[in-house]
Amino acid sequence: MKFLIHKRLVLSAAAAVVVGLLAWTAWPQRVTVETATLSQGEFVRELVEDAQTRVRDRYTVAAPLTGHLLRPRLKPGDSVSAGDAVAAIAPIAPGLLDARSLAEQGERVAAMQAGLARAQAHLARAQSALQQATSELDRTESLAREGFVSSNQLESVRLTRQQRLQELTMAEQDRNSTAHDLQRLRIGLAQAGWPAAQGLWRVHSPVAGRVLRLYRDSEGPVASGAPLMDIGNPSQLEIVTELLTEEAAGLPQQARAWLVHWGGAGRLQARLSRIEPGAWTRVSALGVQEQRVRVVLDWVEPPPAVLGDGYRMEIRIVVQQVQDARMAPVSTVFPHGSGHAVFVIDGGRVRLQAVQLRSRNGQDAWIETSLAPGTPLVAYPPTGLRAGDRVRTGG
């Protein structure tokens, strides 16, 4: 009898253990989550881009003619005054003639000399004919006054003299044209030495400043219009960056900006000056076509003297600034339905709270909510987390 009672007790205890294990297995486990806190303060949204300095008024000095550039004496950083000679160019020499071409050109000159002699002979003949026609006209007019010559005969003599005058004019023009052609051929025969016989053309600086860049630092042939050097005042700097057109269109007037990673300590302050009116297409590193526009900013305080033209830095342009804003880390806000929501930790469980997302930056999201500052939130909520789940904080 005692054995049976003992056996029943053992079976009852085993059944209780099994039921307890089943209940423990079926009981919901706590989910480990990371936590963050709702805060209140100043919300700032910035655009972060690369920027560089640029001399405000840059003058590019170009070659005014094709020729041979002499070695420049100036170096980048040298000071120049307005009107100073900054480069010298020897005009290009004419092509030299070989023996055959020289002989052919000499024969052309001889032929043209003969043509000039013929033109001069025609001119002399025209002068004699005019002189004879003039004498005939004088004699005929004298006879006409005495009544020995008819009016028709007098008119014929006058027309003859007019024709001789026109022939003389044509002969003079032929003589002059032949003389000019002969001179042109003689110029072609002239093989003046270079550069001794050629004068140097001095290129002058349009403004006072310093040499920013030399495009040519050695002598050699140069084409007309080729850039030689850039001149400007390196103390007159502005900041230039390139933004997407939709970002540039949303910038407030005189937007504030901060310059970092410029090579020195601290941040430099700048302010929006202008947005250039023309945009262009640029292909990004991912192969996406972007419409970009150049944005120019001015310094709030004079820039450090160590900065020069074309120095690169990072710019942070303030696009939005709100005081006393409720802010939650961006890792706590997620899409929910047609809006956004957060998970609030309340009594060891999570509660779904809808919020209105107004804006966000790289770290914080500006939201409108009735939650008080300091409310604990779930950061990076797991995919399977649901409202009412029991949680324990893990960070």
Results as ranks from 00 to 15, higher is better:
residue 23 A to N: 00
residue 91 P to W: 04
residue 114 A to T: 14
residue 74 L to P: 04
residue 27 W to C: 03
residue 47 L to E: 09
residue 130 L to M: 12
residue 113 Q to K: 09
residue 48 V to N: 03
residue 57 D to G: 01
residue 22 L to S: 05
residue 33 V to K: 06
residue 106 G to V: 09
residue 64 P to D: 11
residue 36 A to M: 00
residue 53 T to L: 02
residue 30 R to A: 10
residue 19 V to G: 03
residue 62 A to S: 15
residue 90 A to W: 14
residue 97 L to P: 12
residue 35 T to G: 03
residue 51 A to V: 13
residue 35 T to A: 11
residue 26 A to K: 07
residue 57 D to Y: 02
residue 78 D to H: 12
residue 77 G to K: 06
residue 42 E to M: 05
residue 110 A to W: 04
residue 73 R to N: 12
residue 51 A to P: 05
residue 79 S to A: 14
residue 68 H to E: 13
residue 119 A to G: 12
residue 76 P to K: 07
residue 117 A to I: 14
residue 53 T to E: 09
residue 84 D to W: 01
residue 67 G to R: 00
residue 128 S to V: 02
residue 17 V to W: 06
residue 128 S to M: 02
residue 73 R to S: 12
residue 79 S to E: 14
residue 42 E to K: 03
residue 13 A to K: 11
residue 64 P to W: 15
residue 34 E to F: 01
residue 17 V to C: 08
residue 131 Q to E: 12
residue 22 L to W: 08
residue 57 D to M: 02
residue 21 L to M: 03
residue 50 D to M: 05
residue 23 A to I: 07
residue 95 G to T: 15
residue 118 R to H: 15
residue 35 T to K: 02
residue 47 L to H: 02
residue 27 W to F: 03
residue 106 G to Q: 14
residue 84 D to M: 02
residue 66 T to P: 04
residue 16 A to W: 11
residue 100 R to Y: 10
residue 125 R to K: 06
residue 68 H to D: 13
residue 29 Q to N: 08
residue 30 R to F: 01
residue 46 E to C: 12
residue 57 D to F: 02
residue 56 R to K: 03
residue 31 V to A: 06
residue 39 S to K: 06
residue 65 L to K: 06
residue 87 A to M: 11
residue 10 V to D: 06
residue 85 A to C: 06
residue 14 A to M: 11
residue 113 Q to W: 03
residue 128 S to L: 02
residue 66 T to L: 10
residue 85 A to H: 03
residue 23 A to L: 08
residue 81 S to K: 05
residue 75 K to W: 13
residue 113 Q to R: 08
residue 81 S to A: 01
residue 121 A to G: 05
residue 124 A to K: 11
residue 118 R to Y: 13
residue 57 D to E: 08
residue 13 A to I: 15
residue 77 G to R: 06
residue 80 V to L: 00
residue 118 R to W: 14
residue 99 A to K: 04
residue 126 A to K: 09
residue 91 P to L: 03
residue 75 K to G: 08
residue 76 P to L: 11
residue 107 E to M: 13
residue 98 D to H: 12
residue 111 A to Y: 11
residue 48 V to A: 01
residue 46 E to N: 14
residue 18 V to M: 01
residue 121 A to L: 13
residue 36 A to K: 00
residue 51 A to N: 04
residue 68 H to A: 08
residue 101 S to K: 12
residue 99 A to M: 03
residue 63 A to R: 10
residue 61 V to R: 00
residue 39 S to V: 12
residue 129 A to M: 09
residue 37 T to G: 00
residue 20 G to A: 12
residue 125 R to G: 04
residue 14 A to S: 10
residue 44 V to M: 09
residue 44 V to S: 07
residue 125 R to L: 07
residue 83 G to F: 11
residue 86 V to D: 07
residue 84 D to K: 04
residue 69 L to G: 08
residue 26 A to V: 13
residue 12 S to R: 07
residue 39 S to C: 02
residue 40 Q to H: 07
residue 77 G to D: 10
residue 68 H to Q: 14
residue 107 E to N: 15
residue 48 V to R: 09
residue 89 I to T: 06
residue 35 T to C: 02
residue 122 H to C: 11
residue 14 A to P: 04
residue 57 D to A: 07
residue 90 A to P: 04
residue 70 L to H: 11
residue 24 W to A: 13
residue 108 R to K: 15
residue 108 R to N: 13
residue 75 K to Y: 12
residue 123 L to V: 11
residue 98 D to M: 11
residue 80 V to N: 00
residue 96 L to F: 15
residue 89 I to C: 08
residue 39 S to E: 12
residue 101 S to P: 04
